[in-house]
Structures are given as C-alpha cells and as structure tokens.
Simulated scan of single mutants.
Amino acid sequence: QVRHRQSGQIMVLKMNKLTSNRANMLREVQLMNRLSHPNILRFMGVCVHQGQLHALTEYINGGNLEQLLDSPVPLSWSMRVKLALDIARGLRYLHSKGIFHRDLTSKNCLVRCEANGYTAVVGDFGLAEKIPTYSEGSEKEPLAVVGSPPYWMAPEVLRGEIYNEKADVFAYGIILCETIARVPADPDYLPRTEDFGLDITTFRTMVAIDCPPAFLQLTFHCCSV
C-alpha cells in the first residue's frame, strides 16, 4: 500500500523483485492497461526502481472474498448473489476481450466495502492468457498447468488436457460453492469427486434450505461445463 505524494491517493504497489520475472510483469501491465470495467481491478500505472518494473493498482479496502466468507460478517442471500454477479460481470468482460484468467480464486476476487454493502472486483492477471483457438486438424498443444493451490482448477486442466475459458467457468463455480456454503475450496471441506469435479450430492447436504434454487443450479451448471 502506497500513497501518491502529490494527490494523496492510496494505491497498491505490486512488487516485482525477480529480474527473471520482468517479462511476465511487463505482459501483465500491458494486459491490465487494456482493461476497463467496474468489476476488474483498475490499473493505475507503473514505477521503475533499480531497473525493476512494478505495477500500481487501485486500493480495494475490504480484503478478498475468501477472507470475507471466512469472517463472522453476516451475508444475506441477496448480497451473496450480488457478489457472484459482480465476479461474473468482470469475467464476462475479460472473456469478451479474448483473455481468460487461468487463476480465478476467491483469493483473487477483491471486496470493496461500501455504505450499502460490498462490491467484488476480479484481480491478479499474472497468469492470464489469450483464449486459445483450436482449429480442426491442427496440432493441439495444451497450455501449462498454472495456479496454486489447485482447488479451483478444472478437471481438464489437472488432467493435462487442452483447455480454454471454460476452465474459468469451473473456477467460478467453485467460488459459488464457497459463497453459498461459506466453506473453503479445500477438498477437506468442499466435497469433490475422484475425477476432480464437484460432488453435487454431498454438497447439497451442506446448503441452507433457504438458498435460492436458481443460485444453486447455476453453481452446479458451472461445475459441470
């Protein structure tokens, strides 16, 4: 967290300490500079210190979604649906730009505290890539398996198969599970199948009876794409 000397504006400085990571930081900065959406973390600029490039982003005052869900703060169903919608809007915008996140987690969804509740913002684009197009008959080389930990990874990613933006949709489904049941994505808490999918039958038993049915069905759909 840093403050601009002249304007007094508070921003976040993403430090890049490794010389070997300079190309990745430059790529992330170039990507963020192209994005502008209320539910995407806003890029503010860069600074160079001792030859290293560091990114500046807006400061989000409420931590991340994982922290909010793990807190004792009460969240109505309407607020949980709103947070889910915020993330979906940010993700849809990202995909519309031909980019997929590849590391979408509740840790990377930041939460802005406002007078009337919360707004979710998608951040951390260090692993984002252009959405691949696999044409018929061409050699299909899968992208690398990235992201840590793997709790939000789609089954096809974990199996080392080719994957695309649908992997983001699966990760979003896991975030919905966390939001609905207020449990961590860790398989010790969130039931999973042997092929890395969501154990829908067991998860149903963890859901409050007043959960909006359409919200739950959306979750199952996202985890089944």
Rank of each mutant, 00 (worst) to 15 (best):
C177M: 03
P187Y: 04
R159H: 14
R22S: 12
T205H: 06
R204D: 01
V183M: 08
F203Q: 02
Y151G: 00
Q50N: 15
L143I: 05
M11P: 01
I209F: 15
N16G: 09
M32T: 01
N164T: 14
P187Q: 09
E136A: 15
G63S: 01
Y93I: 04
E66F: 10
D186V: 10
W77Y: 10
H101E: 04
R102A: 02
V225D: 07
S148A: 10
Q6C: 13
G62F: 05
E141F: 14
E129M: 15
E178M: 01
S138T: 11
I162C: 13
V29G: 15
T133Y: 14
R34E: 13
V46Y: 03
T201R: 09
K17L: 13
I10D: 07
V81Y: 09
P184V: 10
G137S: 06
F170Q: 12
V73A: 11
Y118V: 04
H4K: 15
L69W: 03
K14A: 12
L127D: 05
F215Q: 02
L85Q: 15
D86W: 00
A88M: 09
C109A: 04
L41Y: 06
T205K: 09
R182H: 05
H49Y: 14
N21V: 09
Q67N: 04
R27S: 08
A120P: 11
I60D: 02
P184S: 05
H221P: 01
S78T: 09
S76Q: 07
P72D: 00
R27C: 10
G197D: 00
A171K: 01
Q30P: 14
F215C: 04
K107V: 08
S20R: 13
Y118L: 05
E28C: 02
I180V: 08
L143S: 08
N164S: 11
D168S: 06
E139W: 14
V207F: 13
G117P: 05
I162L: 01
C222I: 06
C222L: 07
P213F: 10
L18N: 13
V12K: 02
L104P: 01
M11D: 10
L83S: 04
G51K: 03
L127T: 11
M25H: 10
V12W: 00
G51Y: 05
H95Y: 06
S71P: 02
L216D: 02
R42H: 12
K97F: 03
V122N: 11
F125I: 03
I99P: 02
W77R: 03
R22T: 15
K140E: 15
P132S: 05
R204E: 12
L218Q: 03
P191R: 04
L85S: 11
G63R: 00
S224R: 12
N24S: 11
F196L: 10
N61K: 10
N116T: 11
G160D: 09
I209L: 15
Q52F: 08
R34G: 12
M79G: 13
V2E: 12
I40K: 07
P155Q: 10
Q6Y: 04
A181V: 00
G63T: 05
L53N: 03
N21Q: 14
T202W: 12
V73F: 08
V121D: 04
